[in-house]
């Protein structure tokens, strides 16, 4: 503390001691800035580390890593096309199932729910996001798969005669693309519904009242006035859910069957990029194998990065409008 005037003239009580360097403020600013810098540093480090590790495989195998279906560790051939295919298909199935449900719940909670139901239903749906992935996997193995095998798959194939299409044909093993899709749907649902609910609630009251004043029914109000207004935010929520589904590892690994084959049927087992890494990474002994797995990780990193960036951008569109 450098109280210059007061110290130099202690008897003159009229002078103010105002000289003092705020070293604390400097330290605080440096510390918080350093913490903030960790985030960009982390993203950069992840990108560099993974691409550096993937580099040998990328140069040696080039595009065949995602175009070839031949994954033979012993022979040094690493074509991860089935895993890429499985990642995309299982996520697509998940979105097809989860999107209508999630938007339905979001509309229910933001528009129609009785007041007393809003909290508990919202909480239960939010809680889906808190259930650990490995618990979903466990439940998938012992509850969902038997149920799919014994009831849902025969129903789809035989009762609905969907077996005539390539998508629902073949034997019902259990572990399958469909099982992965259903599990991923449950896991993506809370993300989609949380974002959708938020953007629906952000739609101005005037928008709703205007529609009702024009004689619209409550459903028409939602369809014509509320949903269009919140559309880009809802799509952002779906993208966010997609990002989750694409990168999800444990639950999928436990139910998808882990077979590196491309099959049109959802009843057939498949593979995803994340489960490929999870299964083989700790057993990878050759440098090329390790590098190939890193390359798969790099592809996954890029895909989720793009999907999440788009999601963020779409949701920000809505929230920025709301903020101004």
């Amino acid at each position: 503390m450098t109280a210059i005037p007061a110290d130099s003239a202690p008897k003159d009580r009229r002078r103010l001691a105002v000289h003092r360097v705020e070293i604390g403020d400097r330290i605080y600013e440096i510390l918080t800035t350093a913490c903030a810098l960790v985030v960009p540093a982390l993203v950069t480090a992840i990108a560099i580390a993974i691409f550096a590790a993937a580099w040998p495989a990328l140069t040696k195998l080039s595009a065949s890593i995602i175009t070839s279906s031949d994954w033979d560790v012993g022979a040094g051939r690493f074509g991860a096309a089935p895993a890429l295919f499985g990642t995309i298909v299982s996520s697509a199935v998940a979105l097809v199932i989860a999107t209508p449900l999630a938007i339905g719940v979001a509309i229910f909670l933001s528009e129609f729910s009785p007041r007393w139901l809003r909290q508990p239903v919202g909480f239960l749906v939010d809680l889906l996001a808190a259930v650990p992935s490995v618990v979903y996997g466990l439940w998938g193995i012992f509850v969902l798969i038997p149920m799919l095998r014994e009831h849902v798959m025969p129903f789809l194939r035989d009762t609905l005669h969907l077996g005539a299409t390539p998508f629902f044909s073949g034997a019902a093993y259990g572990p399958s693309m469909l099982a992965a899709g259903v599990i991923l749907a449950i896991m993506a649902l809370p993300y989609i519904s949380a974002v959708s609910r938020e953007v629906l609630l952000a739609v101005p009251r005037s928008q709703r009242e205007a529609a009702l004043a024009l004689g619209a029914t409550r459903w028409e109000m939602i369809r014509d006035a509320v949903v269009p207004y919140a559309k880009s935010g809802i799509i952002g929520g779906i993208m966010l859910g997609l990002g989750r589904a694409l990168g999800e590892t444990m639950a999928v690994t436990m139910v998808i069957g882990n077979r590196p084959e491309i099959s049109a049927s959802l009843f057939a087992p498949g593979y995803t990029m994340a489960s490929l890494i999870a299964n083989e990474f700790s057993e990878a002994t050759s440098d090329l194998h390790l590098s190939a797995l890193m390359a798969v990780g790099a592809v996954l990193f890029i895909i989720t990065l793009i999907v999440n960036a788009i999601a963020r951008w779409l949701v920000w569109q809505v929230s920025r409008e709301r903020a101004i």
Partner: peptide, 17 residues
């Protein structure tokens, strides 16, 4: 100036002011 001290003077701490 507050009581004879310039509060915007060089090296003056806003906090202490």
């Amino acid at each position: 100036e507050i009581l004879g001290t310039s509060i915007y003077g060089e090296g003056t701490s806003a906090t202490v002011v």
